[in-house]
């Protein structure tokens, strides 16, 4: 009973922090990037100010839009929000843990992506259609790579939920292996694509031929644009937490052990800072790719995913005999 109550409290804290900190993480990355480039950069809280500004503005509805124009941002945000509830942040054992099957999570990401593509096709502008077509191409490789990675994780952890995978990996019985190294590299490639960062897409891009995510939401304004921006911020924090709880699950608390929560919270904060710093360093030191180089980049991620499971099979074969 007490355990369930603590799990509920932990879930509420998790929810509040995920939703509250998502724009801040975006701001931190932007700030770090600007400092690395020698500019002072906007304040950390700039994304909150932007969201506030967008919420106050009148929404401009294109005359060629159908009634579904206003529906897509809600679908994008709510599917991303549910994904945020499923991915553990500072502790394991949230009340959503039994639902956090990895394949469900991939499905939720796909649903958000589908709604964004439809938003891009909604008004019938050239940019939106081009962006949607490119996103469809990228998603093919990310989904295949993610499923192969899920195979590796599930075979090591013997459980399909993210919560269970993180617990097993944090338990210390897994250790370092070549297989997980490949898996991490593949996962990072997929994460960069899914969150629309350089080298795949430029989050700061406007009206350039290579843009993908921004192209699809070009016709959105006011509060509807705010929903898309917030969903993008949420996606970044989800991916950082996901990679953190699978590959760096050390020190994460259990929802039942309230005394360890502060440790888990501090470690999660450190992970977020570390992730945004490395993302900033990576982004300023890499150039954005041409659109048709991205399939090659993702093909390498897929290959690494397959290699990670092949290495796992070999290791299990050697260990078994």
């Amino acid at each position: 009973m007490l355990h369930a109550f603590l799990a509920l409290i932990a879930t509420l804290i998790h929810t509040a922090l995920m939703f509250g900190l998502a724009p801040l993480l975006m701001g931190v990355v932007t700030k770090f990037r600007a400092r690395l480039l020698g500019r002072p950069g906007p304040p950390f809280i700039q994304p909150y100010l932007d969201l506030h500004k967008l919420l106050r503005k009148t929404a401009l509805i294109p005359d060629t839009a159908t009634p579904f124009y206003k529906v897509w941002p809600f679908i994008v945000l709510s599917t991303t929000a549910v994904a945020a509830l499923l991915v553990p942040s500072f502790c394991f054992g949230l009340i959503t843990a039994p639902m956090s099957d990895f394949i469900t999570l991939i499905g939720l990401f796909a649903a958000a992506r589908g709604a964004t593509m439809l938003a891009g096709l909604e008004t019938g502008i050239g940019f939106g259609g081009a962006g949607a077509g490119r996103d469809a191409l990228f998603s093919i490789f990310t989904e295949a790579a993610l499923l192969v990675l899920v195979l590796t994780f599930v075979l090591i952890a013997q459980t399909p939920t993210i919560d269970g995978i993180g617990r097993v990996f944090g338990g210390g019985h897994v250790g370092l292996s070549v297989s997980l190294g490949f898996a991490l590299a593949a996962m990072l490639g997929v994460a960069l694509t899914e969150t629309g960062r350089i080298p795949v897409d430029n989050p700061a891009g406007h009206l350039e031929l290579g843009m993908v995510h921004e192209a699809m939401i070009l016709e959105y304004s006011g509060r509807y644009l705010a929903l898309f921006h917030y969903a993008a911020a949420l996606r970044l924090i989800i991916w950082v937490s996901l990679i953190g709880s699978i590959f760096l699950p050390f020190g994460m608390a259990d929802a039942g052990a309230i005394l360890f929560w502060p440790v888990g919270l501090i470690l999660w904060g450190l992970k977020l800072v570390f992730a945004s710093a490395s993302l900033a360093v990576f982004e300023v030191s890499t150039a954005k790719m041409r659109v048709f180089r991205v399939p090659e980049f993702l093909g390498v991620a897929l290959l690494l995913g397959v290699l990670s499971s092949v290495f796992l099979f070999v290791a299990q074969k050697l260990g078994g005999s």
């Binding site: 796909a110 096709l121 259609g129 469809a136 998603s139 093919i140 295949a144 499923l147 192969v148 397959v306």
Partner: peptide, 28 residues
């Protein structure tokens, strides 16, 4: 493992197909 990658490709392509039917035929 390869089969899983093929199924992933298929699922993403099916999403692309569905988006294309609705987005190109019914929206815009």
């Amino acid at each position: 493992t390869a089969l899983l990658a093929v199924l992933g490709l298929g699922a993403a392509l099916a999403l692309g197909t569905a988006v294309r039917v609705i987005g190109v035929g019914f929206l815009g």
